[in-house]
Structure formats: C-alpha cells, structure tokens
C-alpha cells in the first residue's frame, strides 16, 4: 500500500465528466506532477485530494486513512495556490502561524515554529511585514512556509509559479524542490508547464480529457511517450513519413532503419514515426543510418541551443544543435544534409 492512494476517482459537473477513472499511487516523499493542458482535470484531481470537491465516485486514502468523506479542514494537508492567497490582513508571521493557531498550539511553540519556517524559506527578517510589502516570489515562499508550518502529511501545489516572472519562477522551483527533499514530504504539483513538470518531478502524470494518459519518470515520459497525445504535448516532435516493415525494422524516406525496441503492432496498422529535434543532426553524423538532403528554412538562436527548421523530403523538420562559438548558424536557403538513426525513432499509434 502506497502512502497516498487515489483509486477510481471520478468527478462530474452535471453531464460533464471532468475526471474519469483516475488511479494513482504515490510513495512517501515522492514528488509527483500532474501535467496537462487547461481543462484536462488536473486541478480537479488536486481539489478532490484537498477536500474542496467531493468525488462523484472513487476513494482517497492517505497513510492508510480513508479521507474521501472528510472536510478540507480535517485532512491535515498543506496547499499552495496559484494567486497570492496570503491573508492580506495578517503579517507574514501571522500568516505562517495561522494553521498552528487554529489548532490551538501554544504561543511560544508557535513562535518557534514560525521562526524555523521563515529561516527555511530564507526570509527570517520578514515576519513583521504585510503581504503587500513583499514581491511575488517572496509571497509565494511565505505561502509555502504557511502550508508547511502545521507539518502536513501531503503538500499540494496548484500552479504556484504561474503568476511569477521567468527568472523568479526558475529559482523558486529549485527552492521548492530542495525544501521538499529536505523535509521528505509527499507532494503533488499541478502545472501546464512541461519544463516545470520534467525538471522537478520524480514522476509525471500526463493528463488529457480527464484521463491519465501516462505515468512515469520524466526521462521515460519524454523519450518513450505511451500515446500520441503525450508525445505531442511533451516537447517538440517531428513526424516523419515512414512505415514499419517488421517487428524491429522500419523505413524512413525509403531507407531501412532499425528500431530501438520491438513494436507490437499488427502489420499494416496506421503508424507515425517521430523524432525529437535533438535526435536530428545537421550534417553527416558518424554512424547515422539515414542521411537526407535538406534546405534550411529558418534559424532561431536560443542561446545555448540553435533551433533550425529545414525542409527534408517534402516536410519541415525542426532540429536542435548546440551553440558553438566557432560555428555560426547556417544561412537561410542554403543546402545541407541531415542525419538520423532508427534507434531514436518514436513509434506513434493511433
């Protein structure tokens, strides 16, 4: 039995089934992301765990206790919200102390815990300030401290970074992950940002239309997407014209290649072959199975990476190369060659 179990969760609003037969087992101390486009049901799952929504059917068990019928204030859960949900009328210290105060923790123990939490988030001097005197990033850190102060069993994060600007977002996500590791607290993180999900999580749940399409480690979800949706939603993808010729072989632009692992599909089924941009190489790469002529169509200089769009065998392909100071990016319109290998191919089934 895992620490947090969601079994056969269903939620309907009227005739609209928002979450369909959702199952998830989270280990103690694990960091899990629910990733998906807006309206995919990820927030609804989180709100059911928090106790704000009652599941239409199914059950939620935390640490062996069935909490499905419990109210939000009886579950001992910590939560961080998207917008600045700090209480504006209370100081930072009073915000952090709120959960302890309503539990009736004595003042001296409360104060000690608040000081500990403020040290943890790196704002030990800010206790006397009001939320409006803090930056967005500081407010969200205080929100984290407030959620952690009562030592909750589970931490829920509802897109806590989406209202912040890019720099703060990256530094805060590292900080959240560090604190989470340090405390070993079981965490569910909801986001629509794949970079956040992939960089922070032990495991990612990719959701679409109320269904968990794939549950797996970031490396696995990215490199071995289980469904077409996961493949296209996570990362950029080049779809190639090609066909599977055998259990472990395929053809790309007429050239036979070898797949990384056998595909179990009926012969002749409609399949697509796809490649990540970083699996397509500009120029002739040593050991590549296929080399194709290409025409450069566009160049995006992204800093450490240069993303090139090239026309290959009638379709436009995106490919990534690392920036090197001695090799300027190719000019638009020039002829080039691209190379690729069968072991990088992702086979997409419909």
């Amino acid at each position: 039995m895992s620490f947090l179990n969601l079994s056969h969760l269903e939620k309907s609003f009227g005739a609209n089934r928002v979450v369909k037969d959702f199952n998830l087992a989270v280990e103690k101390g694990e960091f899990i992301s629910l990733l998906g486009p807006s309206g995919c049901g990820k927030t609804t799952v989180l709100r059911m765990v928090a106790g704000f929504e009652v599941p239409t059917s199914g059950g939620i068990v935390i640490d062996g206790q069935d909490v499905t019928g419990l109210k939000a204030n009886q579950r001992n859960i910590g939560m961080m919200f998207q917008a600045y949900a700090l209480f504006p009328n209370l100081t930072v210290a009073e915000n952090v102390a709120f959960g302890l105060k309503v539990k009736g923790v004595a003042k001296d123990r409360r104060d000690a815990r608040v000081a500990e939490m403020l040290r943890l988030i790196g704002l030990p001097e800010m206790g006397g300030r009001y939320p409006f005197q803090l930056s967005g990033g500081q407010q969200q850190r205080v929100a984290l401290a407030r959620a952690l102060a009562p030592s909750p069993r589970v931490l829920l994060l509802d897109e806590p970074l989406s209202a912040l600007d890019a720099k703060v977002r990256v530094s805060l996500r590292n900080e959240i992950r560090e604190i989470q590791r340090e405390l070993g607290i079981t965490t569910i993180f909801v986001t629509h940002d794949q970079e956040e999900a992939l960089s922070m999580s032990d495991r990612v749940v990719v959701m679409n239309g109320g269904i968990a399409e794939q549950v797996g480690a970031p490396f696995e979800v990215y490199n071995r997407p289980a469904t077409r949706f996961v493949a296209t939603f996570v990362g950029t993808l080049n779809i190639f014209d090609g066909k599977v010729t055998g259990p472990e072989t395929a053809e790309v632009a007429g050239v036979p290649v070898r797949l990384a692992e056998p595909v179990a599909v009926a012969q002749g089924a409609r399949l697509s072959l796809a490649l990540r941009p970083e699996a397509v190489h500009l120029g002739r790469k040593e050991g590549a199975e296929v080399v194709l002529p290409a025409v450069i169509q566009g160049v995006e200089f992204l800093g450490s990476i240069i993303r090139v769009r090239a026309e290959v065998a009638g379709s436009v392909v995106a490919l990534d190369t690392f920036n090197r100071s001695d090799a300027p990016p190719p000019a638009i319109g020039t002829q080039a060659e691209v190379s690729l290998s069968g072991r990088d191919l992702i086979v997409l089934q419909d």
Binding site: N73, A85, F87, G99, P150
Partner: peptide, 13 residues
Amino acid sequence: KREWREAAAVLGA
C-alpha cells in the same frame, strides 16, 4: 478571494 477561504480550510480552520 476563494483562495483565502480555501487556504484557511486546508490549514484546519
């Protein structure tokens, strides 16, 4: 804000 009420609830209030 709805978040205030929910934050209070989840903190046990």
